[in-house]
């Protein structure tokens, strides 16, 4: 702090000269913001501007006129199907991931084995960030046509690929997505499970509650907001994912990110060029909506967790 700044601070603290208040306030405000200027400028150029451009172009046609046809198109035909498929995929992978993640997190908490907990926690941090191309190839090596598990199951008489199922279908994709969804659930839900105090169990037991009653009236209501919040986070996580699906299915399953990807790559009829922006806007709106819900639930949870 320069001496002048310090004086301004002291003046502000002691009330200062009231006559020049607005000027001083302006000076103080600019003093607050100036160090943040690089950050604001950077995120404006590399995040806000491109995003605003996407929203803008969603309402423009090829000849640069206002139009609603992109938006309209994005709710019809194969694009409507993509939104449905994306939402289904995200829902199923979020719910399944949340259930298994919860079981794992609960199991390591009640086991009270410190080293098991540390391993699971560290592994979750690592696996939750594992995605994209390497993950796709890992699963091809596991239950692809020549995967180890596929071959192993064949030895005991189960042919995964007999009924026309492949890894490159909807259910295959869910199986792969769980690899980063379950660990994310463990990370998010562990603090909430830790928040279930032993005293509450003892109090309930003393008052004669059964195990079912404890879950129905105490643990359930307490864990519901964080569980729902985690569900929303998992939904958004899978809804936005592109790399794994792109590498695994090479576009055979219509998902919104995949459609956008192929529109960017130019596999498209000329008059649909601006459709990608409408799809992008739709994605942002859905994820924004879901993440807002997550933030609200998170705040509610934080109230009793701290």
């Amino acid at each position: 702090m320069t001496p002048a700044e310090m004086r301004a601070d002291v003046a502000a603290a002691t009330g200062g000269n009231s006559g020049r208040g607005s000027y001083r306030r302006l000076l103080r405000a600019s003093n607050t913001y100036i160090g943040l200027l690089p950050f604001f400028v950077y995120s404006a150029i590399f995040l806000a501007l491109p995003t605003a451009r996407v929203a803008f172009l969603a309402f423009r046609d090829q000849d640069d006129h206002w139009t609603l046809s992109n938006i309209f198109e994005s709710f019809h035909g194969v694009y409507l199907l993509s939104f449905q498929r994306s939402i289904q995929l995200s829902l199923v992978s979020a719910i399944t991931g949340a259930i298994f993640g919860f079981i794992a997190a609960y199991a390591i908490t009640v086991s009270k084995i410190g080293f098991l907990r540390r391993i699971v926690q560290t592994a979750s941090g690592v696996f939750a960030n594992t995605g994209g191309v390497p993950l796709a190839f890992m699963f091809i090596a596991t239950i692809g046509t020549y995967g180890l598990v596929t071959k192993g199951l064949k030895l005991v008489g189960i042919d995964l690929y007999k009924g026309g199922w492949t890894l490159f279908t909807f259910t295959g994709l869910i199986l792969v997505y769980l690899y980063f969804q379950i660990p994310l659930m463990v990370i998010v839900i562990l603090p909430a499970i830790d928040g279930l105090r032993l005293e509450w169990r003892e109090a309930a037991a003393t008052l004669g509650a059964s195990k079912q009653q404890f879950w129905r009236y105490i643990a359930g209501p307490i864990l519901l907001p964080p569980f729902t919040g985690a569900l929303l986070l998992l939904f958004a996580n899978s809804f936005a994912a592109y790399a794994t699906a792109a590498a695994l299915t090479s576009g055979t399953i219509p998902l919104v990110p995949i459609q956008i990807g192929s529109l960017v790559s130019g596999n498209v009829i000329a008059d649909e060029a601006n459709l990608g922006y409408a799809l992008g806007l739709g994605m942002i709106l859905i994820i924004g909506f879901v993440m807002t819900g997550y933030a609200i639930l998170q705040r509610r949870t934080a109230k009793w967790l701290s």
Partner: peptide, 8 residues
């Protein structure tokens, strides 16, 4: 998501 950001 990155796939939308890249459009912009």
């Amino acid at each position: 998501p990155p796939v939308v950001l890249v459009l912009g």
